[in-house]
Amino acid sequence: MAIYDTARGLLADALFSQVAIHAEYGGVVPELASRDHIRKTLPLVDKVLAEAELLKTDIDGIAYTAGPGLVGALMVGATLGRSMARGLGVPSLGIHHMEGHLLAPMLADEPPQWPFVALLVSGGHTQLVRVDGLGRYKLLGESLDDAAGEAFDKTAKMLELGYPGGPAVAALAEQGNPARFDFPRPMVKRPGLDFSFSGLKTHTRTTIAAEGKKPQGLTDIDKADIARAFESAVVDTLVIKCRRALKQEGLRTLVMAGGVSANKRLRAALTEKLGPEGMGVYYPAPSLCTDNGAMIAYAGAQRMVAGERDTDDTDVRARWPMTELAPPSQAA
């Protein structure tokens, strides 16, 4: 939950993580997620209002995540957001989850200037998008199967690292030997900007099985070395495709957002590879890499200022291609 002011910026931002709830099951349980949204959302509203020293009646509009995502959780936020807006007599607006991530770096003190290429690496999404302005997006490439975040989570499960997987794999990779295993960089030798991480996931599983057959079994050292090889393969693949996208579009600015954008090795590799070629890389603050209210509040404010509003038939969407988004003047 967050409160954004178009004149003063981000006034308040609060997050309740459900990681502890889902960790026992090794992934998100939709029913538990929805029920916990019901319990926690209104207290978070009160928290950000108190932090910003505002009343509900000071709010001029309410934005909420309308998709893509788990329908049950989306319905909780949409129902609450639209109900509050109706009660307060202010407009509401459903926001695309990935547009929120894409715009999160705009909350920085020195935001990027469009046009730029965006790498969106969040949960089930890995996409390269050309951004020419608010709602002016051109999909350049995306994952054809497992997204990078999904591959991290599944690798963590194979290595018995628990949930969430991405941070656990990255932490273990810090202890790994980068020279021991050489994992494939999927689809980098093919033309185009699409991704595929299912083959890398299979190679990881095969390596784990082979090492586990040794007399001593799969050791902690084996796990660290495999984690390092896996992470390096993902990072190299993303860097190669980002550089290719920038050159294809004739642009020199890359924006990276989404949960995987917090990965330190990925950030360092992009800066190291793109910097010498005069290409700039922008990231959101670490707290804004994972799902958060600030990015939705910002995106909602930009579209509302341009006149966009919910209609009576607005609904949440489990699947919502970014290619269906349009500039506010066309969507209003």
Score class of each variant (00 low, 15 high):
residue 228 R to L: 02
residue 97 H to P: 06
residue 279 M to T: 09
residue 281 V to H: 11
residue 326 A to L: 15
residue 261 S to P: 00
residue 81 G to C: 08
residue 234 V to D: 02
residue 268 A to H: 15
residue 183 F to N: 02
residue 71 V to H: 07
residue 72 G to E: 12
residue 156 A to E: 04
residue 290 T to N: 03
residue 272 E to Q: 15
residue 6 T to S: 15
residue 62 I to Q: 06
residue 30 P to S: 14
residue 257 A to Q: 00
residue 149 G to Y: 03
residue 237 T to C: 01
residue 244 R to Q: 12
residue 260 V to Y: 03
residue 34 S to C: 11
residue 63 A to G: 12
residue 166 G to A: 01
residue 174 E to F: 04
residue 147 A to S: 14
residue 156 A to L: 10
residue 12 A to L: 05
residue 184 P to E: 05
residue 57 T to S: 15
residue 164 P to I: 06
residue 253 T to E: 06
residue 18 Q to M: 13
residue 160 E to I: 01
residue 177 N to V: 06
residue 146 D to W: 11
residue 162 G to C: 05
residue 218 L to Q: 15
residue 183 F to W: 05
residue 278 G to C: 06
residue 52 A to W: 01
residue 105 P to R: 03
residue 8 R to P: 00
residue 181 F to S: 11
residue 250 G to A: 11
residue 244 R to S: 10
residue 183 F to M: 12
residue 199 G to Q: 04
residue 4 Y to Q: 07
residue 306 A to P: 02
residue 264 K to Y: 04
residue 232 S to I: 04
residue 296 I to T: 09
residue 122 S to F: 01
residue 101 H to Y: 07
residue 61 G to I: 04
residue 246 L to I: 05
residue 184 P to V: 08
residue 189 K to N: 15
residue 31 E to N: 06
residue 285 A to N: 00
residue 85 A to Y: 01
residue 171 A to V: 06
residue 10 L to I: 03
residue 18 Q to G: 03
residue 221 I to Q: 14
residue 110 E to H: 13
residue 95 I to S: 13
residue 198 S to C: 09
residue 326 A to Y: 07
residue 292 N to M: 00
residue 40 K to S: 13
residue 159 L to E: 12
